[in-house]
């Protein structure tokens, strides 16, 4: 297939939209289970017991799931925040703002990878 798009924009937009999908569909589930459910007693605190979670994290599928769940929404944030800063008038700092925003997402991604996989 001929490459018709010659900028890197699809990479950032692709990460943004994938992250947005996860943030919209999966993050609320996690927030309800861990943030609200336990506090209100709908979910047993045992569910998040340290031993149980560390044992669960041995599973590579769960590792990948958590990695994507952490990394992609960070890129969603980075892209959105970058445009918010542009809209607030930082157009002259286009490149530094982009480096800063995506840089934070990359650092977060790297940390997630280190913690989960090593």
């Amino acid at each position: 297939m001929a490459v018709r798009v010659k900028t890197t924009d699809p990479i950032w937009w692709g990460l943004f939209s994938a992250g947005g999908t996860l943030a919209a569909f999966l993050l609320p589930v996690h927030v309800i289970v861990t943030g609200v459910g336990i506090a209100f007693g709908w979910v047993s605190p045992q569910v998040l017991a340290y031993q149980r979670i560390t044992a669960l994290l041995e599973n590579p599928l769960l590792q990948i799931y958590l990695f994507l769940l952490i990394s992609l929404p960070l890129f969603h944030w980075a892209h959105r925040f970058r445009f918010v800063l542009m809209d607030l008038g930082l157009r002259s700092l286009k490149t530094p703002v982009a480096v800063l925003c995506y840089g934070v997402a990359m650092v977060g991604t790297l940390l997630a990878a280190l913690l989960l996989f090593f």
Binding site: M1, A2, V3, R4, V5, P10, I11, W13, G14, S17
Partner: peptide, 19 residues
């Protein structure tokens, strides 16, 4: 258009010899 061109962009990386 964004969805279509993004899909195409990633496909062209994974499938550079494609149609």
């Amino acid at each position: 258009s964004k969805v279509q061109l993004t899909k195409e962009y990633f496909l062209s990386w994974m499938w550079p010899w494609g149609n």
